[in-house]
Structures are given as C-alpha cells and as structure tokens.
Amino acid sequence: MYQKRHTSSYYLSHAVQTLLLYAVIIVGLLLFCVPVYYMVTTSFKAEAEVVAIPIHWLPHEFKPENYPEAFATAPFALYFYNSLVVALAVVASTLFFSGLAGYGFAKFQFPGKNLAFLLVLSTMMIPFQILLIPLYVLVHGLGWTNNFAGLIIPGALSAFGVFLMRQFCLTLPDELLDAARIDGAGEIGIFARIVLPLLKPPLASLAIITFLASWNNFLWPLIVVNKGNLFTLPVGMTVFTQPMRSPYWTYIMAVSTVATLPVVLVFLALQKYFIQGVVLSGMKG
C-alpha cells in the first residue's frame, strides 16, 4: 500500500513536471516565433491595419498585392539579383580555395608549413572591426568601390573555411591517396577526383554558412557601394529607414519576407548541414 502511494505521487509529480516543461517550451515558442509571424502577416495587411489596437492577428483585408507594389517602390528585384550573384561567387570561390588549401595543409610536407598555418589561424582571430577601415582604403585604392569586385573579392575566402577543410582532410586515409598515386594519378587529379568528392559533407556545411554570411552581410556592402544599381538586398532595404520618408510598413515586411525566403529554402532542403554548419562557424546573422 505504501508502495502504491509512493508510485502514484511519483506519477503525479512526473505529470506536473511534464506540464511545466510544456508550459515553458510553449511560452518560449511564442516569444521566438510571434515576431516572425507578425512580419509575415503584416506583409499582407492594409497599411491602416498595422498600428490597429487591439492588434489584428490576421489581416482583415488580405492584400497580396503588397508584394508587387513593394517591389515597385525600389529596384528590389535588382538588389535581390545582386545579392544572389555576390553570394554564389563568394561560395564558389570559398569552397574551391578552402578545399585546395585545406588539402595542401593536411596532406603535404613543405618548408614553412607551420608558419603558414599559424597565419591562417591568426587571420581567423582578426575581428572584422579592425579590418573595416583599412580594407575599405585598400579596395578604394584598387578602384573596386562601386564594383562587383569590391563586393565579392574581399570576402572570397575565409580562414575558417581553410581551417575546417584541413581538419577534415586530416581524417582522409593516406593509403587511399598513395594507392591513387601508384595507379598513376596526378596530384591535381587526386584532389579533383578523390579528395573533393570525399569532402562533400563539410563542403556542404561550409557552403551554407558562407552563403548565409554573404546573403546577410550588411556593413561591408553598405560602405563599399553607394550606387543604387549595385546595392545588395540588405543595403537596398535601408531606403525604408531613411529620415524624411514615412515608412510603409506593409511593404517593408513584404520585402523582409522575400529576403528571408532563400535562407528558409536552404534551411528546409539541407537542415542537417545547416544547423551543423551554423554551429560550426559560430557566426550568426
């Protein structure tokens, strides 16, 4: 009987615990998701509804035409395209050169290797903060301001990418590479045909974080480009924050939603690599 009472009180406390757990989890869920929900629903509202009190949780007047109208207020389609070009170029170059250098560091012996790797590691530690001004001066000197080169090249490789690829290349068995050499494959052939395919998982993670960093990058494109036709999407969206211009919130939220879509698509398609990649890099937004 004692035993039974103990068990039932145990079950009771367990049930209370589970209830509490769900309560906390759901409050957290609301906190993290409502702002995003608010962004999407506002993008379909009529402008007058935006500041209505009590708040409209669903648009009373459903207006999908906000989207084409928002895209007509500024060349957002062009900004979207610019962002995409820059991000894809940066991803392609980062993947190729990181893979190449990571393989070089992991599987070859040559004088000065440790010193060179130390340089990569210290580059990884340099905050962008200190590079901002001198990098701008350099790019300005090269005549790359207001130019795709200025948007792409300074971000075309990351020390983190090299480091990541080196760590993965270290795990490749030497026997495999030696076997290929004995079969008469050249070093470049080994890299292109054997190493690169084996690096697919870490390359996928690196591709995602590089794409995300480039797609969301704001500060660098903001300073390196001041001609409208080269704006990337984040920079183009700041037209909405200019003073003397009353913001049209439904349009702002429509463009924000569209700007988030590619990231959501990448996330849904490659969820495993996505979370892994974001965690690996320690970068956010």
């Binding site: 995003v36 924000s256 988030t260 990231v263 996330f267 974001v278």
Partner: peptide, 9 residues
Amino acid sequence: TPTLLSGVV
C-alpha cells in the same frame, strides 16, 4: 526560426 532572419530584417 530567429536564426534564419538577417540582422537587417
């Protein structure tokens, strides 16, 4: 979800 939004958004 919040991680999917860029700093500007």
